[in-house]
Design a protein around this nucleic acid. Structure first.
Length: 273
DNA sequence: GTCCAGGCATGCA
DNA sequence: TGCATGCATGGA
């Protein structure tokens, strides 16, 4: 990987295995919007970003400086992880071999713990289009406007002032009561997300499962997408269908990177089952 | 109108 | 421990 800082942009070349469509619009993050020119715009880590690829395959981070790139986006896009090698390992599995050939370039985004946890509480028994709709309303109503018409994900402190009715007004439905308690408990420190992130996987999962409105699926999504646990393997309605292809359990080549395998299988399922 | 979506809490056996 | 049921809402 090579990084070049220009006047307003950061240009990153020689990044293997990063397809923007597959990574930003695959149901792991809900805040990226494809623009007419094919680029993606969104807010993450409190920064507005427009990202695209040029004709050479270089990544262009527009209006981004060294601090936000090094301090946030480099990790957010998981740029220091060797996904090419990971994919070679996963391709020992027959189903993944063809799936990775077809959908090469899915990465796990390292989202912030609070945004990921909150987003996946909203995601339960819900479809991706509506999840995005609710989260965009939440951000527009309670986030900070970090660019013209683009809002940050509101902090737990900010959301801790809301009532269940406020969350219902955003269209959260029956999840509103979960969000009210979660926001208050995180804001008060009763739930310590940074501490959870520092725990071993099993203990971190146990902590998340204690949260009202968080079951095994939401916990695993939060662990994988917000707490950097690559072994977490979320099973939702789509993955339940995929699991019929693995009656003897997950293959050994998934060890330690189950979550990355899962993301390819999830994408395959949504397109083929 | 009916069905479904990146499920969970609750009650009951 | 395991299973049935209700739950909000918007798009297909």
């Amino acid at each position: 990987m090579r990084v070049e800082y220009t006047q307003n942009d950061v240009v990153v070349s020689d990044v293997e295995c990063l397809d923007l469509d597959l990574t930003l619009d695959c149901g792991q993050a809900f805040r990226w919007e494809k623009q007419d020119d094919g680029s993606y715009s969104g807010v993450a880590g409190g920064y507005f970003l427009n990202i695209s690829k040029n004709e050479n395959g270089d990544l262009i981070f527009r209006n981004t400086d060294r601090d936000s790139f090094e301090g946030f986006f480099r990790n957010y896009f998981d740029l220091d992880k060797d996904y090419k090698k990971i994919c070679e390992t996963l391709k020992q599995d027959e189903l993944l071999s063809s799936t990775i050939d077809e959908y090469y370039g899915i990465r796990i985004l390292n989202q912030e713990p609070w945004e990921a946890l909150c987003s996946f509480v909203i995601s339960q028994q819900n479809n991706i289009k509506r999840i995005k709709l609710i989260i965009s309303r939440l951000c527009a109503a309670y986030g900070d406007e970090v660019a013209d018409g683009w809002y940050s994900f509101p902090s737990a402190e900010r959301l801790s002032a809301l009532t269940t009715e406020d969350f219902e007004a955003l269209g959260c439905g029956y999840r509103a009561k979960y969000l009210e308690r979660l926001s208050k408990d995180v804001a008060s420190g009763k739930i310590d997300l940074e501490k959870i992130k520092s725990l071993p996987l099993e203990e971190a999962r146990k902590e998340l499962l204690n949260i009202y409105g968080v079951g095994i699926k939401v916990a695993n999504c939060a662990l994988l997408f917000g707490f950097q646990f690559y072994s977490a393997f979320p099973v939702d309605v789509w993955m339940k269908r995929v699991m019929e292809y693995y009656p003897d359990g997950l293959p050994k080549c998934f060890d330690g990177i189950e979550g990355i395998a899962q993301q390819y299988l999830f994408h395959w399922a949504r397109n083929n089952l």
